[in-house]
Write a protein that binds this DNA or RNA. Structure first.
Lengths: 251, 251
DNA sequence: CGCATCGTTGACTTGGCTCAAAAAGTGTGG
DNA sequence: CCACACTTTTTGAGCCAAGTCAACGATGCG
């Protein structure tokens, strides 16, 4: 059991828990100071709460420090598409920086702790520490890759394949940021409605497909935790190419 | 009729035809020199040819100077998803810069003329001219927005809505870079197979849906040119929010 | 206990897919 | 100019994966 203090960003970036995980690129002392300087404060959003409202003009950028969230777009008639899920270390709010208003919303799946950065400071960051600007671009390109993958998933794969892909993918991302237990299980905060909205499926069909996979013993979803039981079978089902995850920069 | 020389990038970036169009942000003289310096040469790819092969490790970045192209991903069994279409001014190859290998391919729809930049020079660009690095990030974020929109389209909308959205969207993008005639028509190089692959529809259903829209008099597609006839009706069909297109940077 | 959210299941319908084949371009070489 | 091969567009017929509608359990909270 984690103590609550684990989840709040520390005052000093040098104490950042995320930076101690394996998948994060090391930064120089000077860069770390600059990041700390760019940082504005912290913010907490309750599960289900709004991090960035659709169509708003947010004043902040964020790094997700702890918890899960997702980016989404809503149509006039209420249909909602989840674009991608956000895990600790992900940078939030870049698109909005380059558009008049947020073209998508961001919502917390669990209680979420964020480091906040003033939007106006981004250009300065690029100016004074181009390397960190480069890192921001990197993060942006990575996020685009997530969306690319989700698009292939939704556009080309069957319901079964889509769900298999999503489960594997989230499991790998969770593992990367150290959210998984020894047995490979991890807290899985999505409802079936979230899965449906991310994959372009109806709620009912999502449920039936999930049950089918569970009956086949490919995964277990109990007490809000997911455990991938037969990773290889799932991967085969999904035509999932397990590319090694590269270390990423962290702002 | 354009003369062929129009289509080839000029030797000097100061003569760049694209930079004279309305939708492009102005740059300082120094920046233009820096861009020229970053530029490595030019390249032409025939219609149907490969700009970047899937899984390859491309050595170049590109700006699309003239012609149409698209980004795509292919599954093992041959299913293909078109991620987004590329029009003049679009920057190509960023994702590959931050991954081991190109996670997607880029193919020319028409004959295509590209400005080439050495991949290795990108970091220098950020370093020496942070403003241009900022512009690159901007372009990256814009492309992500394109993919976001396509994902909403594919995930949530019906076939009719998807096609209506695509037609309007491409028409607006074409207009922005000055590809449309006085009557609003423009060269439309996509086959129905391309549309199908972009929207996650079968070829047959794509054809039937297109015919339906044409019979309703919403658009005309003849001699390889598209003309949107009833833009408002199409937009309503698609729940298309016509956000004004902002000026973009050009590298 | 009552209300709300989430998961589960069955019955029925349908939008979009597959198969098949013809018609209409497009380009090439003789 | 025609013959031929190839690609692209069209159309019809039948089917199925996934959607809709409806209902019921389970769980949790004030």
């Amino acid at each position: 059991m984690r103590t609550p203090t684990d989840l709040h960003p520390p005052g000093a970036c040098t104490d950042c828990r995320l930076r101690q995980t394996a998948g994060v690129l090391p930064v120089s002392k000077a860069e770390l100071v600059r990041i700390q300087d760019f940082r504005h404060g912290a913010r907490t959003v309750r599960a289900g709460g709004t991090v960035i409202a659709e169509l708003s003009d947010p004043r902040h950028l964020y790094t997700l420090y702890a918890g899960w969230a997702f980016r989404f777009k809503t149509l006039k008639d209420g249909r909602r598409q989840i674009l991608n899920f956000l895990l600790p270390g992900d940078f939030i709010g870049l698109q909005a920086e380059f558009a008049d208003a947020a073209t998508h919303g961001v919502e917390a799946l669990t209680d979420v702790h964020l480091c906040t950065f003033p939007k106006a400071g981004l250009w300065n960051l690029f100016h004074e520490h181009p390397k960190l600007g480069y890192a921001v671009t990197w993060l942006c390109a990575s996020e685009e890759q997530l969306v690319d993958e989700n698009l292939v998933n939704v556009g080309q794969r069957s319901a079964t394949e889509r769900i298999a892909t999503l489960l594997i993918h989230l499991s790998r991302r969770a593992q990367r940021v150290g959210l998984t237990d020894a047995d490979g299980s991890f807290v899985f905060p999505l409802t079936q409605q979230h899965i449906a909205d991310a994959l372009g499926l109806s709620l009912v069909h999502t449920n039936k497909t999930l049950r089918k996979l569970a009956r086949l013993g490919l995964h277990e979803l109990r007490d809000g935790r997911l455990r991938i039981v037969k990773a290889d079978a799932l991967a085969q089902l999904a035509d999932y190419a397990a590319r090694p995850l590269r270390p990423v920069p962290l702002i």
